[in-house]
Nucleic acid binder design. Structure first.
Length: 488
RNA sequence: GGCGCAUUCGUCUAGUGGUUAGGACACGGCCCUCUCAAGGCCGCGGCAGGGGUUCGAAUCCCCUAUGCGCUACCA
């Protein structure tokens, strides 16, 4: 039997990084086994409807490089792949359950349930089918009458009293749960929509899903699902429950403690392949010391059995480190093209991709991701707004003004403004004056960039260009240096 | 409260009865150096605790502790 897996998110408006990992593992597993990957939208909660959520999801999934064989956007033999468009199917199967005695009607209102919960100590409430308002307490005739007169109802699962349910999770091994700990789950809500449990089981069966790969938060629900498969007489798919992605405090990854939407990380400038690489290795790794893998390698090496059991903290510092390792795997003009997005977004206009390419080449090894270049070296896009000489006192000579004036003249005389030529001319001058480079380069850096750190000064000047460098140096000598000298 | 799952350096992890418990990130030091990085070298740092099983346990079993998840007409 050929492998069929699915990624089944609810459309919340963005893709959670945990969701991305689940999608990735499904994708790796499908490709590794020459199987099919299905996208299914689980939008059975009408109160959580979000406009354009499916489009956003697809856009982000596409960014990550995940391709689906079936789904709302590509079709497939078992469509529609949006649950809100499949309501008739769930209703039909809910009725099958009622007829076979596995499901029953219940009429309790939200208030009644809430009161029952309140009056039970320590959250010990369990739905008692022999006390609440339902088919068992009301009788067949009354039940029929209420339904015919349009009273809202739900259909609940009649869970066996005291029965061991056992199943094998590919990642965790055998798990045993007693049905006495399971509530009579609502399957069909009073608005006619199914709950997750019903829709999920019905769709996974109908869509011929062979392996369910999803987050660990679903593990406690598996017995309910097994009861449903049994009730329908269906085969239970293989299951693999992935460990959770965690906040630094080890709680389930959530907003509040940082960004959880993949879109946030795209916007921060992480490379697609670096981000995928990082996420893929959170909770799984193919053994060994390597940690940089292409998507093709991840697919080739992926094994569900090797997925870890315990949760992994989403550590941005590590993500930054991985991202930085991807600098040299990308053509410089591709980087410039990407970079132009952030440059313009920060309000800097009119820079050619050729210039941006030189800026990226000059500065990439000093930062972790593309947009960081702007914060690290704003002077590549605008004149220094202020000059911070506080770190430079130790390199400050009394003759700085004279030296810089000489340098200005030297720079003016350099015809071909390459870093090599600039270097040679300045070194010649230093030799004549018997000066060391470090006595001059720091004041010069301050004059040109306003900062005390940055890429190599000769290279920086080359990229900035002769006119700009000279202009900045003149500005510094006439307007800035006098004020600095007075202070020091 | 109940049920379930988990537990190797601060973090991500390798490890499946015999290893000086390995790597990466972070951190500290040194080298390099025009600063900041990058790079190179060195270092710091871990099997949650207690019982077993075994000639021998990070690896197998039990208990405890801790953490997390679930416990909705949310997924």
């Amino acid at each position: 039997m050929s492998v069929r897996v699915r990624f089944a998110p609810s459309p919340t408006g963005y893709l959670h990084v945990g969701g991305l990992r689940t999608a990735l593992y499904n994708y790796f597993f499908a490709r590794h086994n020459n199987g099919k990957l299905i996208l299914r939208i689980e939008d059975t909660d009408r109160s959580r409807f979000v406009e354009n959520a499916v489009e956003n999801l697809l856009k982000t999934l596409t960014w990550a490089g995940i391709e689906f064989d079936e789904g709302p956007h590509v079709g497939g033999p078992f469509g529609p792949y949006i649950q809100s468009e499949r309501l008739e199917i769930y209703r039909k199967y809910a009725n099958v359950l009622v007829e076979s005695g596995w499901g029953y009607y219940a009429f309790d209102t939200a208030e009644e349930l809430e009161n029952a919960r309140k009056s039970s100590p320590h959250h010990e409430f369990k739905y008692d089918r022999y006390k609440m308002r339902n088919q068992f307490t009301l009788g067949e005739a009354e039940t029929k009458r209420l339904i015919n007169s349009g009273v809202p109802y739900v259909i609940r699962l009649k869970v066996p009293e005291n029965q061991q349910i056992r199943f094998v999770d590919i990642i965790r091994g055998e798990i045993i749960v007693n049905t006495k700990d399971i509530d009579d789950q609502v399957l069909l809500k009073s608005d006619g929509f199914p709950t997750y449990h019903l829709a999920n089981v019905v769709d996974d069966h109908l869509m011929r899903i062979t392996h369910i790969i999803r987050g660990e938060e679903w593990l406690p629900s598996v017995p309910k699902h097994i009861l449903l498969y049994d009730a329908f007489g269906w085969e239970v798919p293989a299951m693999a429950h992935l460990p959770l992605l965690l906040n630094p405090d080890r709680t389930k990854l959530s907003k509040r403690q940082g960004d959880v939407a993949v879109e946030d990380y795209i916007e921060k400038g992480y490379f697609r392949d670096a981000f995928v690489n990082f996420i893929a290795l959170l909770g799984w790794n193919p053994s060994g010391d390597r940690e940089i893998f292409s998507v093709e390698e991840l697919i080739e090496k992926f094994q569900l059995e090797k997925v870890n059991k315990s949760g992994a903290i989403f550590d941005v510092v590590k993500l930054d480190a991985i991202n930085a390792k991807y600098w040299y795997s990308k053509p410089i003009d591709e980087l410039a093209e990407m970079f132009s997005y952030w440059v313009e977004k920060r309000g800097f206009k009119g820079f050619s991709n050729e210039y941006l390419a030189r800026v990226v080449a000059l500065l990439r090894e000093r930062v972790k991701k593309l947009p960081d270049i702007i914060d690290f070296a704003p002077y590549m896009f605008e004149r220094p707004k202020k000059y911070d000489s506080s770190d430079l006192k130790k390199h400050w000579s009394n003759n700085v003004e004279n030296y810089l004036n000489d340098i200005l003249n030297i720079l003016k005389s350099v015809n071909e403004f390459t870093h090599q030529n600039i270097h040679d001319e300045i070194m010649k001058y230093l030799n004549e004056k018997n000066l060391k480079l470090k006595e001059l380069i720091h004041p010069l850096r301050l004059a040109i960039t306003g900062l005390s750190y940055g890429a190599g000064m000769f290279e920086t000047m080359e990229v900035l260009g002769k006119d700009e460098v000279i202009s900045r140096l003149e500005e510094f000598l006439t307007n800035v240096l006098p004020t600095l000298s007075n202070k020091s």
